[in-house]
Design a protein around this nucleic acid. Structure first.
Lengths: 216, 216
DNA sequence: AATGTGAGTTAGAGGCTATAACAACCGAAG
DNA sequence: CTTCGGTTGTTATAGCCTCTAACTCACATT
């Protein structure tokens, strides 16, 4: 690779690193072109040599975020462990990831950015995360009360993701796990529990155990 | 009341009405002092005669939102109906309210606004909504796997809200209902289902039925 | 009728994203 | 070694935003 291009790539990564620092410290508003430039030691407009606009930067941060999350979840899975243990491990990894940098979790799953449209690349990463979760599915999660059309939609969705080896019950189970865990987590990172005196971690664990008890 | 004060109150309501229109049409960024002024037929700075700053306006919209939601949930409850039916009714009302104006739901429960701190008045409304939900609780939702300290925290929380007639199991049930419904809803309004081909309404109904099946 | 209060205006400071025009550098080719 | 082209930085500027200051005008109360 060209040396020019190598430096360029380094600078791009540096910009993203600083953006994540700003995100962790000051929230989404901290990801300002001027602020990043200042921390990088250049003026604001210089950033536009590396990213078409602020949205492009955010989009890349989101894509990176999904990949990082997928890596984390995948790493948490011990293939030798029984399903229940795998589910606990992935759920724990998910919450640890979320509470470590709440703003990053909100960047991915909170209020969407106005102009944002997920690129295909991001979808791959999101699907990787979902696949990691589904890898902890028990052989048969048991029946669910579900409208008939939903199973058809789950089938099509599963085919798109290449989950042909999974049953519709397992796919519904995966979606349910994801939505329930997200339910507690999003309330937690949005600060909705802060005035209740409740420990979100305990509510989270209760949900995880309820999910496991579902089929055992 | 003074005529001056009456006009003033009318204008304040008008500003909030326009702000909600802007919110529904252009999202949170649409709530701009200049844009609201233009629609009201005045210049931007005139708004500051009625609201100290943009945050104060948003705070009031959030408080109003909680109250409106609480009204909606309360209205959905038929005291004569059995618990399961009450839960279905409240859950349906909640989703209808959320999908009617997704941005309003996100305003309340999405990524928090940087400078925002909920005033006591807002808390009351939030508690009203929670109380409405708890009013659909079955006599005994059944046992849950729960860490011991959680029940203690639930007790204290229940006392603060004046829910002395509710068991800890019922309170945990209420929290669980809320977090599961919010899980599906927040994914829906954030557009996370849009590319999966899944109908969020069906996933939502499945969750509602699962919650009911919990104790029946 | 005079006075004070409230509501509107314009001007402007300071922030943001983004573009345009210009300067300087750096690698490569003649 | 020199010259040239592309890259990367700069400053200036437009057009948004929130919010404050200073000013005008109308209205209600005294």
């Amino acid at each position: 690779m060209d040396r020019r291009q190598r430096y360029r790539e380094q600078t791009r990564q540096e910009v993203k690193r600083i953006a994540l620092e700003q995100l962790a410290e000051h929230g989404i508003a901290g990801i300002s072109v001027n602020a990043i430039g200042k921390r990088l030691g250049v003026t604001g407009p210089a950033i536009y040599r590396y990213f078409a606009n602020r949205d492009a930067l955010l989009t890349e941060l989101i894509a990176d975020g999904y990949h990082g999350l997928a890596d984390t979840l995948e790493a948490a899975i011990d293939p030798a462990a029984p399903p229940a243990e795998r589910t606990r491990a992935v759920a724990t990894a998910l919450r640890d990831w979320a509470v470590a940098v709440p703003h990053r979790y909100l960047l991915l799953f909170g209020t969407p950015i106005p102009g944002y449209q997920a690129p295909a690349h991001t979808l791959d990463a999101a699907n990787r995360a979902m696949t990691a979760l589904l890898a902890t599915a028990p052989p048969d999660p048991g029946p669910t009360t579900v409208a008939e059309p939903l199973y058809g939609q789950l089938s099509e969705w599963g085919e798109q993701l290449g989950h042909n080896h999974l049953t519709q019950r397992q796919q519904h189970w995966g979606m349910t796990v994801w939505s329930r865990l997200h339910g507690v987590l999003s309330l937690e990172v949005a600060g909705q529990f802060s005035l209740t005196g409740l420990d979100p971690g305990l509510l989270y664990r209760a949900e995880v155990e309820a999910l496991i008890a579902w089929w055992e």
